[in-house]
Amino acid sequence: MAVKKPKLIVFDLDYTLWPFWVDTHVSPPFRKVSNGSIVDNYGSQIKCYPQVPDALKKS
């Protein structure tokens, strides 16, 4: 029997996927740098909580 997955999952991103408010704690534009990380306009690295990639893969 196949497990039925939801068609859509909605997240409140701030303090759910990453430990900050995206509209007040970081400065766009964001860009991917040579080592694969994402940084904001000032070079601050944007990181999600460690569990997020696995949770998104399982969804």
Rank of each mutant, 00 (worst) to 15 (best):
N41A: 12
T24Y: 13
P29T: 12
Q51W: 15
A55I: 15
K32E: 06
V39D: 01
T24I: 13
W21T: 09
V3Q: 10
P53W: 00
A2P: 12
N41Y: 08
P50A: 09
D14Q: 08
R31P: 00
D12W: 07
D54I: 05
K5M: 12
P29Q: 08
A55Q: 14
N41I: 01
K5G: 06
K58G: 12
K47W: 07
P19R: 13
K58L: 14
R31F: 01
P29W: 10
D23V: 13
G36K: 00
W21E: 13
L56R: 14
F20I: 11
K58R: 15
D54V: 05
P19H: 15
S44W: 05
K7C: 02
D14H: 07
H25N: 12
V10Y: 07
V22F: 08
H25D: 12
T16S: 07
L13Q: 10
P19A: 13
V22T: 14
V22H: 05
K5Q: 12
V26S: 06
D40C: 10
K5N: 09
K58E: 15
I9R: 08
L56K: 08
V10K: 02
L56W: 11
A2N: 12
K58Y: 15
K4H: 09
Q45F: 00
K7D: 14
P28Q: 05
D54R: 10
F11N: 03
P53Q: 01
H25Y: 04
K47H: 09
P53N: 02
K4N: 07
K32W: 00
T24N: 11
Q45P: 00
P50E: 12
K32G: 01
A2S: 15
D14E: 13
Q45V: 06
P6D: 11
K32R: 08
T16C: 12
I46P: 00
V22E: 09
K4I: 09
M1L: 12
F20A: 10
K32D: 00
D54L: 09
F20Q: 05
